[in-house]
Simulated assay, not measured.
Amino acid sequence: MNTRHQKKKSRPAPVSKGLHPRNLHNQGYDFPALAASYPALASHVKPNPYGDLSIDFSNPLAVRTLNAALLNRHYNIASWDIPDGALCPPIPGRADYIHYIADLVGSENLDIKLLDIGTGANGIYPLLACRIYGWQCVGSDINTQSIANVKAIIASNPDLEGRFTLRAQNDKNHIFEGIIQPGECFDVSVCNPPFHTSQDEALKSTQRKVTNLARNRGEAKTKTKASNLNFGGQGAELWCKGGELLFLKKMVRESQVYSSQCRWFTSLVSKSDNVRPLKKLMLKVGAVDVREIEMKQGNKVARVLAWTFVE
């Protein structure tokens, strides 16, 4: 029997390089510790082709269970789950956004009120903002089933009640209208916008991700059904008419109306070609400060645009 591999110690699988200095996931995932603290993960943890412990990132249940384990162990969030097919967010990258937003508004400031546009069924940004920085958060969404799911997560974490509240957007033609109430003020808004122009485009993009995962594991290319995509995402979570650019142009124009009720408006921008026209529009509608924040995650560079009308 070859015992050389049996004696090999596992090490945390690297997730990203260059995450924010305060990000708890800078050293990757400690799968043994995660499985020990969240036993449901144990059956998904196996050596990868390189001999390191990992999970099958093309398996939606494995990815959801990893997220639940991470949120439970590192952020004391119990009973996190999402419906089948809902967008399953990568926790390290989502935490990065919150940390960079904290730099923008002042990480030492505990009296921050955050608005999450399109919180989805996962509610990830307010959950992390509440736990990491103790902020007050409002999550909005056009999908009532998504809101119901986040309400269930909050109910399982009673200390979040009153700190994380939810509002339904009843008009698909508006983003802030109907959500920001008269006389109400926020310090910052965040958003992970739908970035595809159609459901077909979204499915093709996700299929490419699944194919790349299979290629990295040395597997044959397979056709994946929409219901089995680990990245998930339904309807407004992934696509809208006009895609990311049209959605964010609408957001920028509408932000002008609420310029005195939110100090900083921010959003992820997935397509670099959209940055220049969005910055141009921000200045056109009267923004006095526009910032592009880069977030490095492994070989991937994500970007956040932030703009304000307040001197």
Rank of each mutant, 00 (worst) to 15 (best):
A40Y: 08
G51F: 03
D52Y: 02
A69T: 12
G51I: 08
V63K: 00
L61E: 15
G51R: 05
P21H: 08
N67I: 09
T65L: 01
N48T: 05
G51Q: 04
Y38W: 15
N59E: 06
V63F: 04
F31Y: 15
L24G: 04
V45F: 01
L24Q: 12
N26I: 14
V63I: 11
N59I: 01
A33Y: 02
A33V: 07
H25S: 09
T65H: 01
K17S: 15
Q27H: 03
S43G: 03
P39I: 09
L66R: 10
F57P: 04
N59H: 07
D30K: 12
D56A: 13
N48E: 13
H20Y: 06
Q27Y: 00
T65M: 02
P32A: 08
H25D: 07
V63N: 04
L61A: 14
H20D: 05
N23P: 09
L34Q: 02
D52S: 11
D30M: 05
G28K: 07
A62L: 07
T65E: 11
N59C: 12
H25G: 05
L66M: 08
N23Q: 14
N23T: 13
G28H: 01
D52E: 14
Y38M: 12
A68R: 10
G28S: 04
P49L: 07
K17N: 14
A68D: 09
S54M: 01
N59S: 11
K46R: 14
Y50V: 09
L41N: 10
S43W: 00
D56S: 15
N48L: 13
L19G: 12
Q27A: 12
F31N: 09
S58H: 07
L61C: 06
P49G: 06
Y38V: 13
P47C: 07
A36K: 12
A40N: 11
H25L: 15
P39F: 06
S43T: 06
P39G: 10
I55F: 05
S54L: 00
L53I: 00
Q27V: 00
L34A: 01
P39C: 04
Y29E: 05
V63H: 00
L66S: 06
D30R: 02
R22C: 14
P21I: 09
L19V: 14
P32S: 09
Y50D: 12
L34I: 09
V63R: 00
R64M: 07
L19Q: 11
N23D: 13
L34N: 03
S58K: 11
S58D: 14
P60K: 02
A36S: 11
N23S: 14
A33I: 01
G28C: 01
Y50K: 15
S43V: 08
D30T: 11
N48S: 10
Y50R: 14
A62K: 09
D52F: 10
L41M: 11
N67F: 11
S37D: 06
Y38N: 12
L41T: 03
S37N: 08
P60A: 07
H20W: 04
L24M: 05
S54D: 15
D56W: 03
K46P: 02
G28Q: 06
R22Q: 15
L19K: 09
A69E: 05
N23V: 11
V45K: 05
P60H: 03
Y50M: 10
D56K: 10
N67P: 08
P60S: 06
G18L: 07
N67S: 13
R64S: 10
R22L: 15
A69D: 01
S54T: 05
G18I: 02
S43E: 10
